[in-house]
C-alpha cells in the first residue's frame, strides 16, 4: 500500500539542511534553559534533538496548517519530559510560535510546560510525562488506523531508562501480536536514567536482542548522525507489513554542550546568563569540529 504523502519529495530538507535545523533547535533549547527560572530537562532534550529534527522535518507526514488531517502520521512523545524539545521542533516546523513558547513557558495558563498536554495544546497527539504510557497509546492508535484501513504511521519516542517500565514490554508484545507494521518506536539510547548510568544499577544489555526477542524489526543507528537517521527512516518497512520496528538511536545525554554531556547533574537544570554563554560557546565549537 502506498503511503499518503502530505507533501512532495522536493519539500524535504537535505541532510545539511537538517543539520542546520538541529543546530537551531539546540540553540533555542539552550536559550530557554538560560532564561527560564525553573528546571528544563535539557539533557534528554539535547540527546533527542537530532531525532526530533529528522522526524518532524523529514520522516513524519504532518502538515502544520492541517493538524487534524486524518492521514497525518501520529507522533507520541512517550518521554514526555522532553516536551520543550518537541514544542520548539514543532515551532521551527511551523506548528507553533517560538516567541509564544519563550514568553509563556511554564507560566500560569500557558499551553507550554514541563510535560505535553494534548488538551491545552492542539497539535500534540498525547498528554504524557508519566513514563511508560506512550507505547501502549501508540499501539492503540496503530490498531485503530489498521481497522479503518488508513496507511499512516504511528511513531513513538521513548527514553531508554523509560523502557524499564513493564508497560513498555507489554505494549511491545501486543504490537507484535497484532502485526502492527505501521508502528515505529524510536529509543533515545543515551544510556542514562535520572540518577544513574545504564548498566550501573539497571542492566539493559543485550538491548537490541531484547526487542528482537519480542519479534520486532530492529534498526540500530547513530542518533546524532543525520545521514544515518535519514537512512533509518528511509529503511522503515511499508505500513502494511506485519512487524513493528524499533529504531535504537545511540545518543549522548546533553549532546553538544561539553559540560552537560554524560553528566547526571544535567538531567534537568537551568543555566544562568553566564552559563548560557558558556553552553552556547561549547555548542558552536562542537559544531565547527563536526563540519571540519
Amino acid at each position: 500500500m502506498a503511503r499518503t504523502s502530505l507533501r512532495s519529495a522536493e519539500d524535504r530538507p537535505s541532510v545539511e539542511e537538517l543539520e542546520d535545523l538541529a543546530f537551531e533547535l539546540r540553540s533555542k533549547l539552550l536559550h530557554l534553559c538560560g532564561t527560564y527560572e525553573g528546571a528544563v530537562h535539557i539533557g534528554g532534550d539535547l540527546s533527542a534533538a537530532d531525532i526530533f529534527t529528522a522526524l518532524f522535518h523529514y520522516g513524519l507526514e504532518v502538515d502544520p496548517s492541517d493538524i487534524a488531517n486524518p492521514e497525518r502520521d501520529r507522533f507520541v512523545l512517550s518521554k514526555g519530559h522532553a516536551a520543550v524539545c518537541m514544542y520548539i521542533t514543532m515551532a521551527i516546523r511551523g506548528f507553533f510560535s517560538y516567541d509564544g513558547i519563550v514568553e509563556t513557558y511554564g507560566k500560569l495558563d500557558s499551553a507550554y510546560g514541563m510535560h505535553p498536554c494534548k488538551v491545552q495544546l492542539p497539535g500534540v497527539e498525547a498528554s504524557t510525562g508519566s513514563l511508560g504510557h506512550g507505547l501502549p497509546l501508540a499501539v492503540g492508535m496503530a490498531l485503530g488506523a489498521r481497522h479503518r484501513g488508513e496507511d499512516h504511521r504511528v511513531v513513538c519516542l521513548l527514553g531508554d531508562g523509560e523502557t524499564g517500565e513493564g508497560s513498555v514490554w507489554e505494549a511491545a508484545m501486543a504490537a507484535r501480536s497484532n502485526e502492527l507494521g505501521n508502528l515505529v518506536a524510536f529509543i533515545d539510547r543515551n544510556r542514562q536514567l535520572m540518577t544513574s548510568f545504564a548498566e550501573e544499577r539497571v542492566v539493559f544489555e543485550p538491548y537490541a536482542d531484547k526487542w528482537r526477542a519480542f519479534g520486532w524489526n530492529v534498526i540500530e543507528t547513530d542518533g546524532h548522525d543525520m545521514a544515518k537517521l535519514v537512512a533509518a527512516i528511509d529503511a522503515l518497512p511499508a505500513t502494511d507489513s506485519d512487524r513493528p520496528t524499533v529504531v535504537i538511536a545511540e545518543t549522548v545525554k546533553g549532546k553538544g554542550v561539553d559540560f552537560m554531556e554524560h553528566n547526571l547533574a544535567w538531567h534537568a537544570g537551568s543555566l544562568g546568563a553566564a552559563d548560557l554563554e558558556r553552553a552556547m560557546a561549547s555548542l558552536e565549537a562542537n559544531r565547527k569540529k563536526e563540519t571540519v
Binding site: 511508560g132 531508562g161 513493564g166
Partner: peptide, 27 residues
Amino acid sequence: PDIGATLVEFRDTYPDRFLDVGLAEQV
C-alpha cells in the same frame, strides 16, 4: 525507582541495603 538524589548518604553508607530499580515503580 530512579528518584535517588536525596538518598545518596544512605546509598553510599549501606550499599547492600539500597536498591535503585530504575524506572519500575511496580517492581
